[in-house]
Structures are given as C-alpha cells and as structure tokens.
Amino acid sequence: MDMTIAGDTGLLDVLQHEVAVFARRAEQTRLGGVGQVRNSMDRAAYLLLNRLDLEGPMGVKALAASMGIDSSTVTRQVAPLVDTGLVKRTSHPEDGRAVVLQLSPRGLSRLGEVRCSRRQLVAELTTDWTPEERQAFCTLLTRFNVALSARQNTQGVPASEARPES
C-alpha cells in the first residue's frame, strides 16, 4: 500500500536517499569519534555496554528483550566483552543457575571514553548548528528510530535481522 501523500513524493525521495547515505556513512565511520578512541568499539558492543550502564545488571533474556534482539545474538555479542573484561558474568542472587550480566569497572571506564570521543565528533559535525537545531535533529531522529522499531515489531522482523537499539 502506497502511503505517499500527493505532492510529497519528491520530498520523500530526498528523505529516503539521505537516510540511505547517512546509514552508509555512519557504518563507514561507525560514528566512532575522534582521537585515539576513534572506531575502537563496534556498534554492537557500544549498544550493549550502554544498555547495561543505563538499565543496570540483567540477564541475557532481559537484555535481549530490552534491545529487541534474540538471546543467542546477545550471548554471541557479550562473549568477547566478557573475555576482554568489559562485562562481568555473575550468578543471579536468587537463582544460582541464571546468569546476570553487568558492566565491569573497566567496561564503565571504556564506555565513558567512547562516549566522550563520540560526543566530540558530534560536536564537531554540528559546530555551526544552534542548540535549537541540535535539539530538533535529536527529537526527529529519535522519533524516526522509534517508528522504525515499532514497524519492525509489528511486521515480525526476526530479531536476528533487527538492529540493536540504543
């Protein structure tokens, strides 16, 4: 079903093209930041560490549900983070068979470095923007991401194909 509104076709063509260009450039640079930290953490690791920081320790299933991906994907993506000491696996206090994932002090420090580097990159890219323009872009990009996520959820996109959210 074509939901294009008459007269909007040209604008929607430009928008879809710019979203495609953004996705390609973001993946090429990984919006990694600047300085020594640039590109030093892949997207999946960043999003997992960020989620654990924001929501606290949780099990694999809860983390997967929170990010809109399946448990096997989380397990696979968390393994190198545990191996490098960025995430700790501990037993659940009430059910020793269950595993709880939490950000290690090293993981928190590393996440802070990456956030700072990425923040600096975004500041550089938007240096000539007003605070209102930055806020408007953030609001619209968040709204766009929420709409994409909702569409994935209603269309039954397999979790393994869905991209992790922030």
Results as ranks from 00 to 15, higher is better:
91 S>T: 08
49 L>G: 11
52 L>Q: 09
96 G>A: 04
86 L>M: 04
41 M>C: 09
22 F>K: 14
32 G>Q: 05
108 L>P: 00
42 D>I: 06
106 R>G: 02
56 G>T: 06
71 S>M: 05
85 G>P: 01
110 R>N: 03
40 S>T: 09
53 D>W: 03
97 R>L: 04
27 E>Q: 13
80 P>Q: 07
47 L>Q: 15
58 M>F: 02
31 L>Y: 06
68 G>F: 02
86 L>K: 10
57 P>K: 07
44 A>I: 06
56 G>Y: 02
25 R>I: 07
64 A>R: 00
97 R>M: 03
105 P>I: 08
44 A>R: 10
50 N>P: 03
63 L>D: 06
20 A>S: 12
24 R>C: 06
31 L>W: 05
67 M>T: 06
103 L>M: 07
47 L>S: 12
73 T>I: 07
39 N>Y: 13
98 A>W: 09
43 R>W: 03
88 K>I: 15
39 N>C: 14
43 R>Q: 13
24 R>V: 03
38 R>C: 09
86 L>I: 06
38 R>D: 02
85 G>W: 00
30 R>H: 15
58 M>N: 01
36 Q>H: 13
60 V>C: 02
38 R>M: 13
23 A>P: 03
74 V>S: 09
19 V>Q: 12
107 G>C: 03
32 G>T: 08
102 Q>F: 04
81 L>K: 09
98 A>K: 11
108 L>S: 02
81 L>A: 14
59 G>Y: 06
52 L>G: 08
61 K>M: 12
31 L>E: 14
83 D>P: 02
21 V>I: 09
76 R>C: 10
55 E>S: 07
101 L>R: 05
27 E>S: 14
94 E>L: 01
42 D>G: 09
106 R>V: 05
26 A>R: 10
26 A>W: 10
100 V>P: 00
91 S>N: 08
25 R>Y: 12
83 D>N: 05
84 T>I: 00
21 V>A: 15
85 G>F: 00
48 L>K: 11
28 Q>C: 05
99 V>H: 01
102 Q>S: 03
102 Q>V: 10
109 S>T: 02
31 L>Q: 11
21 V>W: 12
74 V>H: 05
93 P>L: 01
98 A>D: 09
48 L>I: 14
95 D>I: 04
79 A>S: 08
23 A>E: 12
42 D>R: 10
69 I>V: 13
27 E>G: 15
43 R>V: 12
70 D>V: 10
19 V>E: 13
47 L>P: 15
51 R>E: 13
61 K>S: 14
20 A>Q: 15
34 V>P: 13
50 N>C: 04
36 Q>Y: 07
20 A>D: 14
